[in-house]
Nucleic acid binder design. Structure first.
Lengths: 260, 260
DNA sequence: AATCAGAACTCCTCTAGTCGAGTAGTCGCC
DNA sequence: GGCGACTACTCGACTAGAGGAGTTCTGATT
């Protein structure tokens, strides 16, 4: 733990706390402070730089907001170690996977050696919101079945998802029950005659809302993927909209684009 | 500007500055503080809540790190107004677009009514890094042509991109010149006989590095998309890797996934 | 040897101020 | 009318403290 940090540049007009953050950031990026390593304590940094506590805290705050460190009350500040990421391939909703009998999330997680679980399953019925109605080609009068749940890997939450389906299709079916059975929602839809053709996915990245940060136990400085997927049948009808929020450091998304 | 904020809850064990941030966040999310509106000044908030200046600043800092507000020195703190987003469709690299003679970025931006521009074009040649070599199926000995540039819309930077191509393919061609000509790199590759088949895209979201934040003039609390695209020819050869960093609030990415 | 109490160390919240610097409006002078 | 000085207001950086609460180590006691 004998990290060597440069001194401050009194000539520079860069604020002291930013200079300090620069030094630490540089040490992290060059591996002198490895993932999981302990960043010098506030007291140590105060002494080394000869500054007040609040100045040290500003520097540490900056690094934390950049997602480089996490502070643990009573223990110290540590360099973030990125958790193993899960790769979402573009063929993840292919029929051949669906027919093997498990939901996409379960299969993928087990294949990569993790223990998948799902909790907070809630099913309600409500009027369609404007956005969902538009995506499903419905009007505001139409009823919607709403299925929300949270996905975890090894007990660690990574994703929340809310599916919206026309009540006319899904109400009273197994889709409206907590356990949708082998292959999940999409397998049930196909059994019911809605042959799926393709999905449209729309991806945004942003900082999480407060509830999202809580639900996914996100460290400060972790953005989320906000993904909205619409499922289309072979006759061009939208039958499901799935709105998911994913911890950005648990996922890499992968897609294949045609060049022709 | 007669925003009404609740008082503090002395019973709560939630820190004062977080309670204040909650109030302001709630006002922003419910539109009582509209995008572009001025958040009450530090002095006003000090008086309203009866707290010290640093406490007010902690609350404002929190909102800023969540990407909800921007502070302007000497003017005030304002609710962030999201810039118009550009949607990247999954067919954006289809041959029919390429053959119309302009690069994908230019066409799309003009279609959505913006003025596209490209700057900071730099072309170098170097040894392949391990990651790029692997993606291109080369060894560390192979030379790589590196094309980096920055894309702007209406003078506002939105994306930086670095393309890596085997020097054996691209060196000495128009791809190694600042202006790659109509249709861009991909059109040149196809002219040279490399018929493109598909692209693999890999998407991560994270907080920007310092240089990225500077190059894209990102407001604090804005994550970036980090997208790595590999171009494959019809015979399965990787001919280009493009590493791009995009301001997350300038883009929505859209993809189509097969269900079969 | 095991356990418990305390000390030492960590980060967290908050106060009460100082000085600095950018912005914008007012008001008087030319 | 135009221009500059002044002033009030804004956020930015920093100091020097306080008490609190969670963690870890250590040493004494059983």
């Amino acid at each position: 733990m004998d990290l060597i940090l440069p001194g401050l540049d009194p000539e520079s007009d860069r604020p002291v706390f930013k200079q300090m953050a620069d030094h630490l950031r540089e040490a992290i990026e060059h591996g002198r402070l490895a993932p999981g390593a302990k960043v010098p304590s506030e007291a140590t940094l105060m002494a080394h730089y000869g500054v007040a506590r609040m100045t040290v805290r500003s520097a540490l705050q900056l690094l934390q907001s950049e997602g480089l460190t996490v502070a643990e009350h009573g223990r110290g500040v540590f360099v973030r170690s990125r958790p193993p990421v899960r790769r979402l391939a573009s063929d993840r909703f292919a029929r051949r996977h669906r027919q093997r009998g498990k939901a996409a999330f379960i299969v993928e997680t087990e294949e990569s050696g993790g223990k998948p679980s799902v909790d907070s399953i809630r099913i309600t019925e409500m009027d369609a919101s404007a956005d969902v109605a538009k995506r499903l080609g419905l009007t505001a009068q139409d009823k919607i079945l709403v299925r929300s749940r949270r996905y975890l890997i090894n007990g660690h939450p990574v994703e929340t998802a809310v599916s919206y389906l026309p009540a006319a299709i899904a109400s009273g079916t197994r889709i409206a029950e907590p356990d949708t059975g082998p292959g999940g929602i999409y397998a049930r839809l196909e059994e019911m005659g809605y042959r799926l053709d393709h999905f449209d996915e729309e991806i945004k990245a942003r900082m999480p809302l407060r509830e999202e940060a809580r639900a996914l136990k996100l460290a400060p400085g972790t953005p989320v993927f906000h993904l909205i997927r619409t499922a289309f049948t072979e006759d061009g009808r939208a039958v499901e909209v799935c709105d998911t929020v994913m911890s950005s450091d648990a996922y890499v998304l992968a897609y294949q684009l045609p060049a022709r």
